[in-house]
Design a protein around this nucleic acid. Structure first.
Lengths: 330, 330
DNA sequence: TTGTATGCGTTATCAA
DNA sequence: TTGATAACGCATACAA
């Protein structure tokens, strides 16, 4: 049987209230008793029971990460950042994948009693976000925002990143620049498309609805979509893909068609996932601070938990183009 | 304020004991009262408090995943499998990264009260494993085994996978086959090296200590190690890397040296991570059931939790060579 | 500064 | 089949 606070109290010759106090530092204890308690704790190897503690103290010291695709390189890196920061802050991290948008609703009731707050990543409908706000569950949005609600959010500055990437292609005189987006309904995908369109418009560059396609953020999706682009009567000379996985898939499709990257078609991605620097040709891409997003999400959430009244913060993390070989400009 | 079991009892006109019973199905309740309780639960939107439940019931319904590198493609995929299976079994999943081997010891005491069991992945010293056994914490080992203890483990059948890969290279007459291992002290790395050596020995194939190097399972590590291999007076004609990330790094190094894959040097990896099929040249690699490992780990752990007395199971999941372009045999 | 006593929301034991 | 009631292990208001 694990030692309880009573065992510690007895051994130290004090009451359990005193033990609790020195362990939580809630109020002063005489140095002597403090020492006695600490020693008893050490000797017994006592660890407070988390359930009892949260039952009495109304805090779980636990956060939840709720994501659509846990295992993509992008989310994996976010998880890493969140986990490290959470641990440093003495918090624990629960993880949930929600392949289906609707599943989040099922999850919430089960979850809500086990966590102090949650980090919501990727897509999920506004109705769900609203219900969270209504239930006063502390949470932050990662990778998306929501209009009209007081919710903290962290996003990459996609607009500027994409604008820079497309402008880079224009500056190197690539005409016929195609765009492969993610899920059509994703707000982030929308922003990136807007940036793409604006970049073209601002330079009076040729634009064509046929050069814009939407996929699903996967390598296979990028491959298939690029293949469709190549089959066009007027195929593109450059492709911007809204994430690196699709870009890598696109490169594969281009080569499979017997063409070369970047000589025949240039490719630019988005994210700068770890493998981007190692594929061939090395991927030119828009770097964003993935790991840092995870860290920041935890910090913002902890702030909100500590003081639910603080005004929401909206962070747009900087992005910048990393020029490698796949765009043919170096 | 969230409704408690008392609110439900009052609304249904029964005692809290009855509410608890119908919710847990522990013993029979009259259909009528059962209905009344369920209705009250629905109307109130009642959800049992997890802390109270585990305090009274001695179960947390939570598992922990303890890994060295959360964000590698390999572990990310394991997490995905474990998360899906855990959720299906109504369990929650905590996640912890332990970059330093020693950190596991610090983690355990904090962890132990919050989970019913844990899944240990990657490296951690035997002393730690022993202490877990001593403390009767239910756990399973993922990706490694431990000698002399009654612990369930799940591993890929690395030996046969590597043997098949190296034999494949031999069959295609590649002489001078190099081996890039992971951390020298990793048991898995050792097994893979043994398979490599045996494959060569069984065919009386040239072997050379200089062709064996150890790295760290990362792309950068694979790159650096391959570069050292290329600088040898007698550089290898083929490289087997103990995971795909190192293989991808190695390909990059080979190209950086002005050589071609597979024409000048063939490369084979291990794992078959999702991106392996999309890099160039597409990576020939030993596929193992990563996702399935995660699922199986949860199942074995749950068995062990349900009955700590069951004998440990050791699973060696099948592997097989997936021939793509990087080995030059197709 | 320290101790007593109560409550947190369940499950489980025992009677009824 | 149901209902009191005692744990479960801790935090904390209140007393001393």
């Amino acid at each position: 049987m694990r030692p309880t606070i009573y065992d510690v109290a007895e051994r130290a010759g004090v009451s359990i209230a005193t033990v609790s106090r020195v362990l939580n530092g809630s109020s002063k204890a005489a140095p002597a008793t403090r020492e006695a308690v600490l020693q008893a704790v050490a000797e017994l190897g006592y660890r407070p029971n988390a359930a009892a503690r949260s039952l009495a103290g109304h805090a779980t010291d636990t956060l939840a990460l709720v994501f659509p695709e846990i295992s993509s390189p992008f989310f994996a890196e976010i998880i890493r950042g969140a986990e490290i920061e959470a641990r440093q802050q003495q918090y624990h991290l629960l993880i949930y994948g929600i392949p289906e948008v609707g599943e989040a609703d099922t999850l919430l009731p089960v979850l809500s009693t086990r966590v102090d707050g949650l980090i919501l990543g990727g897509h999920c409908d506004d109705a769900f976000v609203r219900s969270l706000v209504r239930q006063a569950v502390p949470f932050v949005l990662l990778g998306r925002g929501v209009e009209g609600y007081a919710v903290s959010s962290i996003q990459a500055d996609s607009y500027n990143g994409v604008y820079e990437a497309v402008t880079h292609l224009i500056d190197h005189s690539y005409r016929r620049i195609a765009f492969i987006g993610g899920h059509v309904d994703s707000p982030q995908s929308r922003v990136r498309f807007d940036a793409y369109r604006s970049a073209l418009a601002d330079r009076d560059w040729p634009a064509e609805p046929g050069w814009v396609m939407h996929s699903d953020f996967s390598e296979a999706g990028g491959h298939a979509t690029a293949a469709r682009l190549l089959a066009l009567p007027q195929p593109p000379r450059a492709i911007f893909a809204a994430n690196d996985q699709m870009a890598i898939g696109a490169i594969d499709a281009i080569r499979a068609a017997g063409l070369r990257v970047p000589e025949d078609i240039a490719v630019v991605g988005f994210d700068d996932i770890p493998v981007a620097a190692y594929v061939h040709p090395a991927l030119t891409t828009v770097r964003r601070q993935i790991y840092e997003s995870g860290v920041l999400a935890v910090r913002l959430l902890l702030h909100r938990i500590a003081d639910p009244e603080i005004p929401p913060e909206h962070h747009a993390l900087p992005t910048h183009l990393v020029v490698r070989r796949s765009c043919g400009c170096m």
